Simulated assay, not measured.
Amino acid sequence: MTAIWFIFALMTGLAVLALLWPMSRRLALAAVPEGEARIATETGFYRDQLREIDRDAARGLLAEPEAEAARAEAARRLLRASREPGRTAGAVGEPALRRRRAASAFALSTVPLVALLVYGMYGSPDLPAQPQAERLAHARAAGNDLAAAVAQIEAHLAKAPEDGRGWAVLAPVYLRVGRGEDAIKAYENSLRLLGEDATRLADYGEALVATGDGVVSSRARDAFERALRQDPNAVKPQFYLARAAEQDGDRAQARTRYAALAAGAPPEAPWLPMVRDSLARLDGTAPSPAPKPAAGPGMSEEQRGMVRGMVEGLAQRLAEKGGTPEEWARLVRSYGVLGERSKAEEILAQARTALGNDPARLAPVEEAAREMGVVTAKAAP
């Protein structure tokens, strides 16, 4: 505790000294007639300039003709400054000296007082010191290992933004903690710096799907198609392109893609139940119990839960505040892709009520419902 007050006293003294130093120089010059002080300042400047010219000439930075010309010009200005008439005004008056002394006394007394008042209002001198390493250790002890890791990687990338591997490591972490937009930017940086390969492109497309509430957008579809050109046997791009066809209402194409994926899958593949559920949904048969969320092969349970959380967050917002027809359509499509037909039917009914059964506004919602095979009786007008 004593040490911190000593440090504060030292910092306050330095601040006061910084204020008083220029004033003390002016006070010292005040004893000299003002004109003489100005002449001394200007002649000193030109003498310094002459010495600088000599140094540059000695180092070869100035050719001799240029050095001579510069010396001549500086010498002329030096003579003019030292002989200029009207520069010998009297000394600074006593009122000016009194004002400067009063300003010095004010600074000496006020700066420490203000510092103490501010620290008393906003400071916390009783809290123990917490260096960065100790804070990170406490964060890990409190179960915030992931947040500490993200902070470390972000600090590294702030200093080395061209480290593609750093962006590749950070992107899935962002996705895991629900920072979808940041994950997309991180994947884009890794693709730009490391080049395209099937895995990075597929993961980038998956981040776009997760951020888009399970909808395979045109950007995501383009990423999956580029991934397949890199590796025609990659599972994740095939799965999402099948899902994209399903969302577009091209059930035949979707079934062909799902069937090809299932035919080439090893029996123990963890993503095979999702493919079979999708085929069952397209064939109109009952899907297997507890269908998986709209998440692609290779995603962890945490990531699947995150995708479901995004969809449910959109549903809650639309239920509380309403939304555009496109948002209602996206929610119907998302639940259809999740395989939750009853939820999709419930959202369709809510959309019809929220949009006032206006056929023009309901058109995109009804279209999404038809694509997902969701049909409910329309409300009576």
Rank of each mutant, 00 (worst) to 15 (best):
R243F: 01
A186K: 11
P65L: 08
E320G: 12
L14F: 05
R38Y: 07
L50P: 01
R179Q: 15
K159F: 02
P297W: 09
A151E: 14
A254M: 08
M306G: 12
A3P: 00
G336I: 03
E345V: 06
E181T: 07
L318Q: 13
R59F: 02
A360C: 00
G264V: 03
E301W: 07
Y119L: 09
G373C: 07
A75L: 10
G13I: 05
S342W: 00
V177S: 05
A319G: 14
R38T: 06
E366G: 11
A147V: 09
A319E: 15
A30N: 02
R317P: 01
E246R: 12
R370Y: 04
L10G: 12
M310Y: 14
A137V: 02
L228I: 08
A368M: 10
D182H: 14
R83C: 00
E346L: 04
L20Y: 02
P161R: 06
A234C: 05
A102H: 00
G309W: 01
L282M: 06
A57P: 01
R38Q: 10
R135F: 05
A74C: 06
G339N: 09
R361H: 02
E42W: 06
V216P: 08
A142D: 15
A115Q: 03
A158D: 13
E327I: 04
L201I: 06
R26S: 10
Q152K: 10
L175N: 12
A63Y: 00
V92C: 00
R333C: 05
I153P: 02
A252P: 00
R47V: 10
P359Y: 04
L194K: 13
D358E: 10
A58V: 04
L314Q: 15
L79E: 14
T211L: 06
D182E: 15
R333L: 12
A242D: 09
A349N: 08
G13M: 11
A265Y: 07
G305E: 12
A81G: 05
H138F: 04
A254L: 07
V375Q: 12
E320N: 13
A286L: 12
A28R: 13
P359S: 09
R77A: 14
R352A: 13
A286K: 15
R77S: 12
T88I: 03
D145C: 01
T12K: 01
R304Q: 14
G60Y: 03
A259R: 11
V275P: 05
A105I: 11
E320T: 15
L117N: 02
Q303F: 05
A269K: 08
A242Y: 04
R200H: 11
V150Q: 12
